[in-house]
Nucleic acid binder design. Structure first.
Lengths: 161, 161
DNA sequence: GTGCTTGCAAAGACTTTGCAAACTT
DNA sequence: AAGTTTGCAAAGTCTTTGCAAGCAC
């Protein structure tokens, strides 16, 4: 799998926005790139500390908006007190999340026909769709039947419908 | 429009759950019933205070889960720091929300075919759908063109696709 | 009377911010 | 050198909780 969102890309984004390239920002982006799954700000801080333990929580919180606004990292709100993030790896953006209520894992999914919904809505209300997300909450059937859940131990970041 | 979720209904729910009928709970439910639109916990407190200004914030926060678990009030998370609530009025539950980024208004919508999505997902991941929501973020075309937004001043709680 | 509820204020959880020192350009 | 960025700790925002007094059953 090709990693498109490399550090060079990040440097460009910083330049574009008139921001400075600091070791902290590079380390934080590096840690985000290194995360295979969804992570919280706190998860990210922990991972960042393995690179440089002097980097502060504040800087992580200040850097995350830069990353999300650059689309190098995506923000996912599943209704918890804290937000989740993940680093997309060259795929098209996904439109749906499935949250397993058993293992709390978040699956990013493609939902190819989803846009139709938003557009139907837009017409009726005179609104123009900016973005839309489908959020599915689900529980593990395997876990119920056999007491174990394969998904919980497998990396399945993106699936298509 | 028939109001089905009346106070008698609430008393029953309280009894069912082994909870006591207090003036505070009745006032809070009354205030929720009185709210035509989406409201926050703080909005609700304000409205409750018009009925009885001695009712505390804590009681409002403690009563909201009772109301949502009874399905007398529904909770909506649109990714802000605080949650929104609304009192459904006899309609079927909606499956989608459209949030106008201009007026911040939330429109509850029916999305009849939405369940298909969740079920497709469920099959692939071996998960059983518990619930699903479509969240559309949209901006007002009228506002852009003419500088005013009809929706912002109109009550349109539920629309069907 | 028993024990659930309430109001108050304090605590909690996550995130943001003011400020002086440090760093990028 | 000029102005951004950082770390620290404090503040902020929304929500929850411990406790003694009050109320429903």
């Amino acid at each position: 799998m090709e990693i498109q969102s490399n550090s060079g890309n990040f440097r460009e984004h910083l330049a574009q926005q008139g921001l400075r390239v600091t070791n902290q920002r590079l380390a934080i982006f590096g840690a985000a790139l290194d995360s295979e799954d969804h992570f919280t700000a706190e998860d990210l801080l922990e991972r960042v500390h393995k690179i440089d333990h002097t980097i502060s929580r504040a800087t992580v919180y200040r850097t995350l908006p830069i990353l999300t606004e650059s689309n190098l990292v995506r923000e996912v709100d599943i209704g918890k007190d804290y937000k989740f993030y993940y680093t997309p790896r060259g795929e098209e953006p996904t439109q749906a999340q499935v949250i397993c209520t058993d293992c709390e894992k978040i699956f990013e999914m493609d939902a190819p026909f989803l846009e139709w919904y938003g557009q139907s809505v837009a017409k009726k209300l005179g609104l123009a769709v900016d973005s839309q997300r489908l959020q599915v909450s689900a529980s593990c059937e395997n876990l119920k039947r056999e007491g174990s859940c394969e998904n919980c131990t497998t990396e399945q970041l993106v699936q298509s419908l």
